[in-house]
Design a protein around this nucleic acid. Structure first.
Lengths: 335, 335
DNA sequence: TCATTCTTGAAAAAGGTTTTCCCCACCACA
DNA sequence: TGTGGTGGGGAAAACCTTTTTCAAGAATGA
């Protein structure tokens, strides 16, 4: 930080003194106010540059009532999905001169509301990813958080811009894809039972089951991480399923890894799908058949809505991204 | 945010009025100052709770001169390495009630200094990852940024806590590992020519060459991403190398993917190593031999030093993590 | 010359808190 | 009863900026 003669950060007062003008004038110049003599403006700017002055964001925030900062709370910063949302948000916000504060709730369900509120106080708005927060808790939280954009879950009670991936719609083409390949015994590796996105997938699978009564779709409790997927390999094998729908790419990759260790060949003996299309999915061996969710764009769209909200404009319509099936090498004809 | 009768956020003044005490007393109570009558303190706390008052972080920051916030600037938020550092930093800082601001410089070399300075002004300290910033630029930047912790590059001129991975030392066991497996024609997929970490690897390889004059180590210009690794497959094959050292796991995985497409079997026809041991490396098929760098801990250690700096304490010694070789399935005997 | 417009300055309010300084009351001791 | 000390509480300064108000002076046009 630029320090003045006093050794402390240089303030607007010193610039004013040095330039021989009033504080008002410096402020007017720095904020692009028109009614100021170009000659004086030039001098002020020169002095400001020489002193390396820039207004204290803190003081500015206080008087302006905005911090040029938004936050995002994610359940797990380790998850590539949220990393991508964060990236999309950060880059989009940066273009409008906003910074992004990141909060990792670590899925500590009890603290999520508190953390969100506390984080929200430091900035102008917040993006909330809380897939497992109980509905009634969300309901009281959201109004306190406004402006807020919700990601990956809807709240029927409160009006907040919401961006989702349509997991219910997305899982069906994957199941149908397996079905068309001849798979009749299908296993679904379940995510967190109390997460919205897991419920949606289950609903989608129920539809699929209704369409295809001859298919047997069995749920296997699993989880959301590599390790979870890795751990259920034996259960999968024991289930006799020939096609497996992973809750997400991570569990699919974990399972794939465990299957390799056990000598089970994919897709010859077992077909496997993921969900999300994280960057690594297409580089697996075999490349993972999955449903792609444009998470980076989700982050960007979140910013658009936040930005609109912050400017008192009406945000764009809610968006539900329809996952797009990406057929790759991890699925093949049923044995 | 809790809003008072006026519709605006409730301030310390309203609490004072409601409790029939002065502003000072409320402040003292809220900050745990001892010299206050327990009865009054109780009343103040009750009123504060009822009004859902909590002090404005902005105003607090202004008067306290600290924001309880630190920043991290990374060259590319898409890179799993920096994601992990961010995660380690965020979680460690959260334990001490600090928030983390994230800035993605996007490797726009020209703007890096400006972005860092601007970001730094919003918070109390910053973690800098700028592997490609020219030395002289870093030299003038660092003093301006203090308190600052440097990640993955040292600056010989300035005293700032520095955390690095010893890429020079780390690449040698990988090369030796290939050598011991009989590989004599070895290719190194180069990262960014102007990045410190690439230079260090080259130095390490020079050492290896000196040790093993009969080994032929050729550099192949590549890059740092999946796509870069994927793109050099033909050049690698044309080089006649039987062992390949990737700049990092990403290029190794990209190359692996391209080799699979071309029917080149790993490790039977070609052995391949990565660097970093990102979470996905061990789930590849075959699992990637690599050198593991504890990036999450790097983020945590960065926080420790930042925290010390912020409290006027002497930070722990600089740390250079010696990468640990992880031998997995992607390397095997030379054909 | 007069009226109008433009530019600048001075001063103050506002934003919300912490902290320093001071005062008052109370207690103990002489 | 007077004095010194102590502990608790209030007033005000400080943090730094933007914005508003008011006034004064200069320049311009009629």
């Amino acid at each position: 930080m630029a320090r003045g003669a006093s050794g402390r950060p240089v303030t607007i007062i010193e610039v004013a003194k040095q330039a021989g003008v009033s504080i008002s004038t410096v402020s007017r110049v720095m904020n692009g106010n028109h009614h100021v003599d170009p000659a004086i403006a030039g001098r002020v700017r020169a002095v400001a540059a020489e002193l390396r002055y820039s207004a204290s964001p803190l003081a500015r925030s206080l008087v302006l009532g905005r911090t040029q900062r938004v936050a995002i709370m994610v359940p797990d910063l380790e998850n590539p999905t949220f990393q991508s949302v964060l990236r999309g948000l950060t880059r989009a916000a940066a273009k409008d001169n906003y910074h992004v504060l990141v909060a990792d709730s670590l899925e500590t369900a009890g603290e999520e509301s508190t953390l969100a509120l506390e984080t929200r106080r430091c900035c102008d708005a917040i993006v909330l990813c809380a897939p497992r927060m109980p509905e009634d808790q969300l309901r009281v939280l959201l109004p306190e958080l406004a402006p807020v954009v919700l990601i990956n879950r809807e709240s029927p009670y409160v009006l907040a811009p919401t961006l989702t991936a349509d997991y219910e719609a997305g899982i069906q083409p994957l199941a149908r894809h397996l079905y068309q390949l001849g798979h009749r015994r299908i296993a679904y590796l379940e995510g967190n039972p109390d997460s919205v996105s897991n419920t949606q997938r289950l609903t989608g699978l129920a539809r699929f089951r209704a369409e295809h009564p001859d298919a047997d779709v069995a749920g296997i409790p699993c989880g959301v991480t590599f390790e979870d997927g890795h751990a259920v390999a034996d259960a999968v094998i024991a289930s006799g399923a020939t096609g497996v729908l992973g809750f997400n790419d991570l569990v699919a990759m974990g399972l794939l890894s465990a299957l390799n260790e056990r000598g089970v060949r994919v897709p010859e003996q077992l077909s496997l799908t993921g969900f999300d299309d994280i960057p690594f999915a297409k580089y697996m061996t075999p490349p993972l058949t999955t449903a792609s969710v444009p998470v980076v764009e989700l982050g960007e769209e979140a910013w658009k809505r936040l930005h609109a909200l912050l400017n008192g404009e009406k945000p764009d319509h809610d968006l539900s991204f329809r996952p797009r099936i990406e057929i790759r090498g991890s699925t093949g004809p049923a044995p």
